[in-house]
Amino acid sequence: MTIAPSTSDTCEQLLLDNQVCFALHSTSLLLTKVYKPLLQKLRLTYPQYLAMLVLWERDGRTVSEISQRLLTDPGSLTPLLKRLEAEGLLSRTRSREDERVVIVQLTEQGRALKVQAREIPQCILGASGRTVEQLRRLQEELQVLRGHLQDNL
């Protein structure tokens, strides 16, 4: 004889607040809202900020390297990079060895923006209500989760 799960068990598993995906999604939305006024001072959107972070780590990356680092599609990254180029923050040039490869480099203005962005992590820390250690542990747990999810794609 097969015992069917009770209605309450099934419904409990499907409650929105019991979903890890919703906890991550809603937190991400709120975190982006906290970033918004900070980034407006720099005239950057959140996705543009992420691209700038990658270039501030190491300048002269290819579009492919940036998209891999951001876990995004190179095609969706290109319009974002074009806007940053139009703002004078970076330049895009085709590789001499392989014209399919586009190399992205910060301009002087793009490098100078890094100095203005230095206050942002401290502002996010303050808004989080967490300690540096607590956020680092959370970040490590999320990176492990991300790795497992990537492995299961």
Rank of each mutant, 00 (worst) to 15 (best):
I66R: 02
Y49N: 06
M1D: 14
R146D: 15
H148W: 07
T107M: 01
E97T: 10
R61M: 09
Y49A: 08
T72E: 08
F22L: 12
W56V: 12
V144E: 15
A4P: 10
Q13I: 08
T107Y: 03
E133T: 09
G60I: 05
Q19I: 04
E57I: 01
K82L: 09
S64Q: 15
P74K: 08
G88K: 05
T32N: 08
Q105D: 13
D9N: 14
L106W: 08
Y49F: 15
E119L: 06
R146S: 14
S8L: 15
E140A: 15
L113P: 00
G126K: 11
R146L: 15
Q116C: 07
P37M: 05
G60S: 02
E140S: 07
G126Q: 10
I124T: 01
L42V: 05
R137T: 06
L70K: 07
C11M: 14
V144L: 13
E85R: 06
L14V: 09
S64G: 06
Q109F: 03
V115L: 13
N152A: 15
A127P: 07
L50C: 12
T27S: 14
L77V: 03
T27M: 10
S95C: 08
T7V: 14
Q40L: 13
Q116W: 04
Q19S: 15
T32D: 11
L149G: 03
L50Y: 00
Q143G: 01
V20E: 13
R136S: 14
E141C: 05
G75A: 06
S91D: 10
L125I: 04
R92G: 07
G110I: 00
M52A: 08
Q48G: 14
V63A: 07
T62K: 09
Q19C: 09
P47K: 05
I124W: 00
I3G: 15
L38N: 08
V132M: 04
E87I: 00
Q40R: 15
I66K: 02
T32P: 00
L138E: 12
D151C: 10
S91Y: 01
V115W: 06
P79F: 02
Q105H: 13
S64L: 12
Q109N: 07
S28L: 10
M52Y: 03
M52W: 02
T62I: 02
Q139E: 11
T10Q: 13
L15S: 02
P47L: 08
L44W: 00
R118T: 12
C21G: 10
Q116T: 05
A51V: 14
D151R: 13
L50K: 11
F22P: 01
E85V: 00
P74H: 11
E119N: 08
R100Q: 07
K36L: 07
L153M: 11
Q134K: 13
L138W: 04
P37W: 04
L53T: 10
F22Q: 14
L125P: 03
E85S: 10
I124S: 05
Q68H: 09
T62L: 04
T27E: 04
R137L: 07
I3Q: 15
E12S: 11
T78M: 13
L39F: 03
L138G: 08
S76I: 07
L29Y: 03
H25G: 01
D9M: 14
Q109D: 12
L31F: 14
V20K: 07
Y35K: 02
Q150H: 11
Q19Y: 06
E97Q: 12
S91L: 10
L90M: 06
E87R: 10
I120V: 14
E97C: 00
R94N: 11
L142N: 12
S91K: 05
L38T: 03
G147V: 03
T45F: 04
